[in-house]
Design a protein around this nucleic acid. Structure first.
Length: 922
RNA sequence: GCCCGGGUGGUGGAACUGGUAGACACGCAGGACUUAAAAUCCUGUGAUCAUUGCGAUCGUGCGGGUUCGAUUCCCGCCCCGGGUACCA
């Protein structure tokens, strides 16, 4: 009997379920290990073969760690708030909760079929009120906190209030940058309303009038992280800038810590680099330039204060508030037109033609603080209102954008760092000696920066300053299917709902669309109020629930806390996190932010959510094509298509095997192909192929269910790992799956022998031979090393070699097969369980212990081996391959022999690597 | 433009700290078994030349360098993938 994966897999999945095999509880006697996957959004399309890739890897690792004696937390859940369910609801009127529930059910089935060892008792769903109650609770904590820049952490708002009472705010920076200072007396005199308004400028969750990314088609605002190339990340709809009252989270206060703590975590370089760029720290100085004939001063930010003597003009962003005040009457019209145009250009347009240089002279002049020369003030849209101070001192000689602007408008260019040829291009490098710069002359750029900042500070015209690119995260969404923000309004001011009244549940609405006056869908709900006051009608963004879910898994059913301190202290942080790199500047930044915030308030004791992160690659689709001869129902095989005039048509990749079309299936695929005719090559129809994104419309979606039906879950698991390195993106190609399928069958045959027509279990109790032990221990060593460095593809190869060698040795010995089965079980859990039972064990293999390898069996025993001479020609040395230290000594003594082999030439130098002669130099 | 990552057979990919390049698998070719097919097993498979046996030469994107020895390290260039985009 061949291996019947269908009955075996069902049998063990049932067994695991009935015995609750994957449930984990806190066990102080064992070290913990937390393996986490990024949880999926349960879409209507179900899983395709690309989705489980990361889950298979994490499952292998989790099972491996379990066998190594760790108490492993390996949970799964659903990121179940999101746009598709809502859009479906808008179209059909069906409540998103219902579609979401159905989709989750389908996902769960698919995941179970693959045989994952998730602890489903800990399942979380972000759209479950029992879960989002705590998301709302964290929001309230954010609202009730401020960032103390002296202690460098978040503190309860009460500490700020008492500070105001005693000292006012003269000694504290205002995070929002507004300079309205007050004394303690003034604070006490303020009305409650005024006090609350001031506190809003400090709260980590705050509402403010701000320029936001508005997506009219989605009808909602988006965070910077959700906008890519001027269009929404989801759906690709255009995004425009708009001023709106918005909830935001003050992530910018955490910029430095988010940057610094990247050092201590084991994430990929590219991902850390993306986060660094996103945070965008730049060191420099803020300098004030007086505007000639007025009391105004233009404040600029520059990273190159050393080049201040090269500043030949100033440029303001069109939106800069000073523009209107300093523009001279004769330029007013031109300038205001320019400002108007610039404001109305969408982000998209502005990005599309970065090369276009536009700007306008304002008629005003600034006074250079060191030379007292008058330098013209321009406006230009290459200066961004949202970064730095929205104004720059333009140094065309040493900044390529200023250079282009100066060239275009014929503004003088003054070289101050020697290095390039400024007649051709700007010299931006921070390398060279200062010239034409008064007291900076002769200094290197590095020293000049320091000296310039000193001089600027001494003169009282500015100070050294660090700027970050990262903006606060917009937190409100004008959508239905998200967590309600637990806030109500009294007297126009926001207050949070009492903790005991959480969760604020999503109200029923008649439609999932905005109201006629453009209010969010929640405004449709009847009596959506709290204690008679109106509740906030925007909801939280998709990333709210995912910013802390890893903590909820630790104690998923806790009714009184987001997780008990006992659970938090035991499980601490994620040891291995696997998920897609596309979350680099979204989820992975927010989850770090919330972790740091919760730590500041003392709820958890970790700085970072995940010690190690691995980004699995994307699996692309491999589309198949048939070629229809023009105006006919005749299809031409790929190799012959150039002889005809043909059109390529996507064909369902599931009726193509090894690029050969299943002609009968094709005829049945669609009515119109029923009578199709074919021009074949060697009696076969070869399809054309192309790598594209996996999508329904391209007919290249391969479902894991089909693969499991055909080859079994273990085969799918092995094959997905065998495809290549986990991090690599690659097209799905079913062609090679027979390899892993053969492997499983070969393994099965090791335990069975043919008895006539019948095959019977055959396991020998004889003691293994040296060769057999060598095969086993080699395999254990390699597999262990490979799992530990996440090289799952090579360990699958190792298994294949092992089974091939055991087959050659006809080895069916218990003593070999038992440990082999254990080390295989993370990869192919179903067959491993079956074999484990066959070997006579009543317990599940998950209770077994990962075997240790024994170095002794690995020593080579060959007696001649090839050695290079001068790195080229090879001779065979009659010496053991593996040498101990003493062996090397003696082998050196045998150099007479070597000399003989080298036709009498004596070796100059002998290179020994890993106790083995590699090369002889003569 | 800038910042990361990467270029190895017909294909996916191995080669861990510089030490026998191409493991393993797919595909292909030939053979065994079979009435036949499937399944299974065996042999070959980087290129060129020689195949009467041992073989010989070239070969990890291109050009150079370091080294007894380079897919691996260094310099210059080309190409591909990802991120980012006027961030002063």
């Amino acid at each position: 009997m061949e291996y019947n994966f269908k009955t075996v897999e069902k049998k063990w999945q049932k067994f695991w379920k009935e015995n609750n095999s994957n449930h984990t509880v806190i066990d102080q006697s064992k070290p913990k290990f937390y393996v986490l996957d990024m949880f999926p959004y349960p879409s209507g399309a179900g899983l395709h073969v690309g989705h489980p890739l990361g889950y298979i890897a994490s499952d292998i690792y989790a099972r491996y760690k379990k066998l190594c004696g760790y108490n492993v937390l390996h949970p799964m859940g659903f990121d179940s708030f999101g746009l598709p369910a809502e859009q479906y609801a808008i179209q059909t009127g069906q409540h998103p909760a219902i579609t979401t529930e159905e989709n989750i059910k389908r996902y769960r089935e698919q995941l179970d079929n693959i045989g994952f060892s998730f602890d489903w008792d800990r399942e979380v769903r972000t759209s479950d009120p029992e879960y989002y109650k705590w998301t709302q609770w964290i929001f309230i904590r954010l609202f009730d906190s401020w960032y103390n820049r002296l202690t460098n952490k978040a503190e309860p708002i009460e500490t700020l209030i008492s500070h105001f009472r005693n000292h006012g705010n003269v000694d504290a920076d205002i995070p929002s940058g507004e300079a309205d200072y007050f004394s303690s007396e003034e604070w006490l005199d303020f009305s409650e309303k005024r006090q609350q308004e001031i506190l809003l400028k400090y709260r980590l969750a705050y509402i403010s009038e701000a320029t936001v990314n508005w997506c009219p088609i989605l009808g909602t605002v988006l965070a910077n992280e959700e906008v890519k190339d001027g269009v929404s990340e989801r759906g690709g709809y255009p995004v425009e800038k708009k001023k709106m009252k918005q909830w935001s989270l003050r992530i910018s206060e955490y910029a430095q810590r988010l940057l610094d703590d990247l050092e201590g975590i084991d994430w990929s370089d590219s991902l850390k680099e993306q986060q660094r760029n996103w945070i965008g720290r730049s060191e420099g100085a803020e300098v004030n330039f007086k505007v000639h004939g007025t009391d105004f001063a233009i404040e600029v930010f520059t990273t190159r204060p050393d080049t201040i003597f090269g500043a030949t003009f100033m440029t303001l962003a069109p939106e800069h508030e000073l523009v209107e005040m300093i523009v001279t009457p004769e330029y007013r019209n031109e300038v205001m037109n320019y400002v108007f145009e610039a404001k109305n250009r969408s982000e998209r347009e502005r990005m599309a033609d970065v090369k276009r240089i536009t700007g306008n002279f304002t008629g005003a002049y600034a006074i250079h603080p060191f030379t007292n020369e008058k330098i013209p003030v321009w406006i230009g849209d290459y200066v961004l209102a949202g970064y730095g101070t929205g104004a720059v001192m333009s140094v065309p000689a040493h900044d390529s954008r200023d250079y282009a602007f100066a060239r275009h408008f014929k503004i003088p260019i003054q070289e101050v760092v020697r290095g390039g040829n400024i007649d051709v291009e700007s010299y931006d490098a921070k390398d060279g000696k200062l010239i034409n710069s008064d007291f900076l002359n002769g200094l290197s750029v590095k020293d000049a920066i320091k000296k310039a900042i000193d001089a600027i500070e001494k003169k009282g015209i500015g100070k050294g300053k660090i700027n970050f690119r990262i903006r606060d995260a917009v937190f409100g969404r004008q959508r239905y299917w998200g967590e309600p923000i637990p806030v109500y309004y009294k007297d126009g001011l926001p207050f949070t709902v009492d903790e005991k009244d959480l969760p604020v549940v999503l109200p029923e609405v008649d439609k999932y669309l905005p109201t006629e006056d453009g209010e969010p869908p929640l405004a449709r709900a009847k009596d959506f109020s709290y204690k008679g006051f109106p509740l906030e009608t925007t909801t939280m963004p998709g990333w709210a629930g995912s910013s802390w879910y890893f903590l909820r898994y630790m104690d998923a059913k806790n009714q009184n806390q987001f997780a008990s301190s006992q659970a938090l202290d035991y499980w601490k942080d994620v040891d291995l996190y696997i998920g897609g790199a596309e979350h680099a500047t979204g989820h992975l930044l927010y989850v770090r932010f919330w972790t740091k915030f919760l730590k500041d308030l003392g709820f958890i004791h970790i700085d970072e959510p995940a010690k190690k992160l691995i980004n699995q690659g994307m699996i692309q689709g491999r589309s198949g094509f048939v070629f229809r001869k023009k105006d006919s129902n005749v299809f031409i095989s790929n190799g012959l298509k150039n002889n005809y005039e043909t059109t390529a048509i996507h064909v369902d990749i599931n009726i193509v095997e090894n690029d050969i079309l299943n002609i009968n299936a094709f005829k049945n695929w669609r009515e119109e192909y029923k009578n199709a005719e074919f021009v074949l090559e060697d009696g076969k129809y070869f399809c054309g192929t192309e790598v594209e994104k996996m999508s329904k419309s391209k007919w290249n979606v391969v479902s894991p269910d089909d693969m499991i039906d055909k080859y079994g879950a273990d085969c799918l698991r092995l094959y997905e790992m065998f495809l290549g390195p986990l991090e690599l993106s690659k097209p799905w190609n079913t062609n090679g799956i027979t390899g892993t399928s053969n492997f499983i069958r070969k393994l099965w045959r090791l335990f069975h022998k043919q008895n006539g027509a019948e095959s019977v279990i055959s396991i020998s109790n004889e003691s293994p031979t040296k060769d057999e032990l060598k095969v086993l221990h080699k395999t254990i060593k390699k597999v262990k090393e490979d799992i530990e460095r996440f090289s799952f593809n090579t360990s699958v190869s190792t298994f294949m070699i092992c089974v091939n060698e055991l087959t050659d040795l006809k080895c069916n010995k218990h003593a070999i097969l038992e440990p082999l089965t254990i080390i295989l079980s993370p990869y192919a859990p179903h067959i491993a369980e079956e074999l484990w039972q066959m070997l006579g064990h009543a317990d599940s293999i998950t209770k077994a212990v990962f075997p240790e390898f024994n170095e002794e069996y690995l020593i080579e025993s060959a007696f001649t081996y090839p050695v290079s001479v001068n790195g080229r020609t090879k001779i065979n040395l009659p010496l053991p391959l593996s040498l101990s230290k003493e062996d090397i000594e003696t082998s050196l003594l045998k150099m007479d022999e070597v000399t003989k082999l080298l036709n009498g030439q004596s070796p100059k130098k002998i290179i020994v690597v890993h106790g083995r002669i590699i090369n002889i130099v003569i």
